[in-house]
Design a protein around this nucleic acid. Structure first.
Lengths: 125, 125, 125, 125
DNA sequence: GTGGTCTAGACCACT
DNA sequence: GTGGTCTAGACCACG
């Protein structure tokens, strides 16, 4: 369900947040769905429960999930919308980096190629 | 000359490196130009000299500048080329983010539009 | 009859206790009235029977209700008096918060105004 | 500097948050002041560093302080304003409880007395 | 020295 | 079973 990179610079808990949001954006997780419990997931990923707790707490703070103590943690109705807004920020990030590359004299085709490559399509240049 | 964010997630020394490279990429710094001394710059930016030393050392390691002990630190002839090669990392960053957006179900056109917008061209859809 | 918040910080069983007492304080529940059975209420509120059992046990312990096995659970004659005494806890809560506000430098008039406002009287200052 | 109650129901980290805000509200902590470091404070209070980290993180999320990694944590310029807004919520809490007490038939004088007592003044009834 | 992250494992209350 | 909190102690990067 989750893929963890223990050696990258991004903290594990951020990876959990990121991937959970991705699951919501893609529709794999919907309103009312229960998130895997801290204990279960910690065993599956061999990650410390506290680390997962931290990730889930942040998701809760963002309004993406809500905890019913003793019952589990559930995806909220606003989750999809909130995650969607977050995606717009990422688009802004792409734009910002593109501006840098532009200023540095990189051809636009190279940047477009990078995007296309990510989407699994090779473009001719 | 430099703009430092003391509270962001990016270390100060990386900000120095990044911005120095940007100045070279934009042509504001050319071969033979002298870089501000550690002592002077540390006062200007109120940044720890060790931090600047670390940044400059890294720039030297990359072959972007060279120190002439007692005389100062100067931009090398290879600097522009080396910085240019470094830009490929940024392309990789674009690709990485694009992959995330792809996984989250964002249409490729939106991402391409973000890039095009940065290059000052409006795309038709 | 009851309003449950499954996600708040207050345990469900405390909410049941609290609201039952409120009904008694307001006179909606009087001596001899029968409380809804655990089974029925658990379905209505979709709450675990154990949770209700816990709430009712506590109410019994306080002498607010009493169970006639096989016949149901009934409000006692002392209920109103006992609930009344319990209100002193709320007064303590007011005092505790007031102490915080005092420590934070809020003027006493503002707090007194908040109380008066709740009692539907405007205070002159 | 801080007073911890280890046996109450309020988590330690919330006590830290609360008391830090109180120090800001009272003016004892001002913009730019450095908060005691996690390590130092953990020794002083004999509280685990993680617990303090959690408290400080929350304060940071609220915009009350900001961390400069490697340098310490500092009170922001907005801190006083943010804390002030939080106090208004507490006043609302007083009002809400007062309404409950009103509904339950408690005399307004008793509530006003509770407030006055907190402010160290005894009122006659 | 600072903050940030993580692990290991414990305890508690609630359902 | 669930989530929430806490302790003890470790490692890392930064300044």
């Amino acid at each position: 369900m989750f893929q963890i990179d223990r050696f990258g610079r991004v903290p594990i808990y951020e990876q959990i947040i990121e991937q959970t949001q991705r699951l919501i954006a893609s529709g794999a997780l919907k309103e009312g769905d229960q998130l895997p419990s801290v204990r279960v997931l910690s065993q599956e990923l061999t990650v410390n429960p506290n680390t997962l707790q931290k990730a889930y707490s942040e998701l809760e703070r963002r309004g993406i999930c809500i905890s019913a103590p003793g019952n589990g943690r559930f995806v909220t109705g606003d989750a999809a919308r909130i995650v969607g807004e977050g995606l717009k920020e990422k688009l802004g990030e792409v734009r910002r980096i593109s501006e840098e590359l532009c200023a540095a004299g990189v051809h636009v085709e190279q940047v477009l190629n990078a995007v296309s490559a990510a989407y699994g399509k090779e473009t001719k240049d």
